[in-house]
Amino acid sequence: MLILTCPCCGVMADETELSPGYEAHLKRFGPGSTPEEFEAYMFARKNPKGVHFERWRHTYGCGKWFLAARCTATLEVFGTYPAQVSEPPADIIARIQARRPDWKADWQPDGKAPK
């Protein structure tokens, strides 16, 4: 069972208390954007095997959205943080780099695969 600490209310929440919201830090494209930009925002996904940043909702707790850094290959949790940021905070990045020295930050929300 996945356990995440909700940064909004501080509760250590079991997976059954949470709803997954998939990829975090997406940059929104709406009216006026190109079809390519809209498609990249709306549908194209990073879906990495390894470090991932995602949205979660503490549905059966405080009800708030928050973000989590997790490894999809091992299910290790690196930490959770509030949703009101456009990129992961430095302490989360540091924790990931300590555990995954080869990992390269790639959360730029342009919808393109990192080169």
Binding site: R45, K46, N47, K49
Partner: peptide, 15 residues
Amino acid sequence: GQLAEMAGFRLPIEA
């Protein structure tokens, strides 16, 4: 998703 990344594009897929 991994193979697509090797080939340089993204897919509308979650694993």
